[in-house]
Structure formats: structure tokens, C-alpha cells
Design a protein around this nucleic acid. Structure first.
Lengths: 152, 152
DNA sequence: GTCATTGCAAAGGATTTGCAGTTCC
DNA sequence: GGAACTGCAAATCCTTTGCAATGAC
């Protein structure tokens, strides 16, 4: 989907956020990216338009967008936060070799039966499936020796 | 299951790891814990037995155990790594309020149908389901105002 | 005009690295 | 005996915080 400036502006207004050029650019970059960029990825992407911008602004902006519910923070590894502007319920596939994250949109996964063996007073509000494996490139290159970290 | 010193020693030997008192204590503490402790949690737990031990040793040991496949790193939030010595395929339930992690052992979740819409050459080796919600205590205390971070 | 936002610098917390001394095999 | 392990300190990396200046509403 192509998102225009006025779409973004409207979204910001709905959330009571001011529409600044930096904020617009960061959110736009996130909307357009299919990878799941880190704060620094976004900084690099947006920096050419705003040479004066600081990484801090990216962090601040991502925090605001997250609090407003406009984006999700995708915590796969613990080392760096990654962000996602795709709010459609979806799941992820992670390559153990190169750490690439791919969206999995299979709607069957959205309807998991409620698990048993959990505390009775726990109210489940959602779930997410994380698949792990090796992408074609990493299978070819590494054959085997895979970084064993990050399970989950 | 009760795990004895000789069990641990054998496991270490199978992995080619030296059996040091610190390492044994850390692994033992992890085996006994049902929470999913952070490196520092383990450090605090083991420190009374080894007043001279440094947090660094805990990190080093956890790295070795993880590389050897004896433990898993559970990455829920990105802020702190959590570890799990329960290698039985299982899933997790996380309280959005207090961040408590509960193991979900429902075996039906282990047999998810392979998703569609993923790259053809991607080889999936495993998956994990993360449920999110509110534990009873947090539901009672907060009513609503829940920390919105950490989705996925 | 006011208050959120920005930029810069500095702090903070978690984890890793370097290195010398120790200990298990 | 030698490689792996431990402890300590310093470094690194990611993220947050403080504060003055700016700009959107």
C-alpha cells in the first residue's frame, strides 16, 4: 500500500501527535521497509534528508509512535530493538544465520486454540509465532555452522 | 526432576566442558529455577556460595552453556537476556504488566502446520509461540494501564 | 504563546573484551 | 603441562535522560 503524506499527517493527528518533518520521515521509512529495521537503520535511512538529525530523535520518535500504537517493537534478539509498522496480525520467520526477519502472514496462525496448563486468572490478549531456520543463502554458505544463540 | 552433581558432570563431559564448581552451581541454579532468570538473577542466586565470583563469569558460563546447547536464551524483551534450561519443546506466556514468563507445555502447539507465504528455500528448524496477556495480580492491580511496549 | 519536539552531550545499564592468575583434565 | 576457566577492570554497545533551543498547533 502506498501511503501519502496526508495519510501520515492524519494518523498523527488522530493520535494527538505533532507532524514534524523528521517524525514523518521516520514513520514513512518504517512503513516502506519490509526488513525490521533497528533505530540505527532508520537513522541511516533518514539521515540524508536531515543531516542535522540525531539518533536520539529516532529513539524518541519510535518511543512516541510505539506508545501511540502506530508501530510495534519486535523483540527477537535481545541485543537491538527492531520495529514494525505492519500492524496486521502476523508472525515472524527468523534466519539463525543472518538474523533476517521475514513476516509470515498465514492467517491460520492467528487462530491458535487457547493453551491449557496456564494460570486460571491469566487473561491472554494475543499471541505470536516465531519460526526459526535457515534462509537459502545461509544454507548454501554455511552448510552447518550456525550461530546457536537466540532461541526463545 | 531432581538433577544430581554427577548428572551435571556427565552433561558437561558430553559437551567437552570442564566441570568447575562455579559452572556447576550456575547450571544447577538454572535447572532449578522456574522463572527465567537473567544473568544477574543467577549471579545473585549463586553468589552466596562463591563470594569471589564475578558477574562476568556468569555471562561467560551462560555463553558456553548456550553454545553447547545445554540452555536456551529466551528473548522476550530486548533489554535483558533471560535463560532457560528446560529444553523440552515448549512455549511461553508473558504478562505485559510484570513481565513474568510462564512456560506453556501444551504439546498441540508443537505441531503447527508449516506456514505458507515463506521463501521456498527457507528451511524451518523450529518454532515457538509467545502468548501475551495479564496475570491475575496485574489485572487486579492495574485494571488497565498496561505498558504497551514489547509486542512482536 | 505554549508545549511538544528536536539536537546535542552526557549518563545509564547490559554485555563483552583484555589480560593475568588459577584450575581442571 | 596446557588449554580452559575465573576474576577484575575497562571498554563497548544500545538506549535513555537532561536541558536549552526550536517549531507545530
Amino acid at each position: 500500500m502506498e501511503i501519502s503524506f496526508s495519510d501520515i499527517k492524519r494518523k498523527f493527528q488522530e493520535c494527538g501527535l505533532k507532524t514534524t518533518p523528521q517524525r514523518t520521515a521516520i514513520y514513512d521509512a518504517l512503513l516502506r521497509s519490509t526488513a525490521h529495521p533497528t533505530a540505527e537503520d532508520l537513522f541511516v535511512k533518514v539521515a540524508p534528508q536531515f543531516p542535522m538529525m540525531s539518533l536520539n530523535t529516532v529513539y524518541y520518535t519510535l518511543g512516541v509512535l510505539r506508545t501511540s500504537g502506530l508501530i510495534h517493537e519486535v523483540n527477537i534478539g535481545h541485543t537491538r530493538a527492531r520495529f514494525d509498522a505492519n500492524l496486521t496480525p502476523h508472525h515472524h520467520l527468523i534466519c539463525l544465520g543472518c538474523q533476517t526477519i521475514v513476516d509470515v502472514m498465514d492467517p491460520r496462525l492467528n487462530r491458535l486454540t487457547s493453551p491449557f496448563g496456564i494460570p486460571k486468572d491469566f487473561e491472554i490478549t494475543g499471541h505470536q509465532v516465531v519460526f526459526r531456520g535457515l534462509c537459502g543463502s545461509c544454507r548454501r554458505h554455511t552448510g552447518r555452522s550456525i550461530n546457536h544463540s537466540s532461541s526463545g
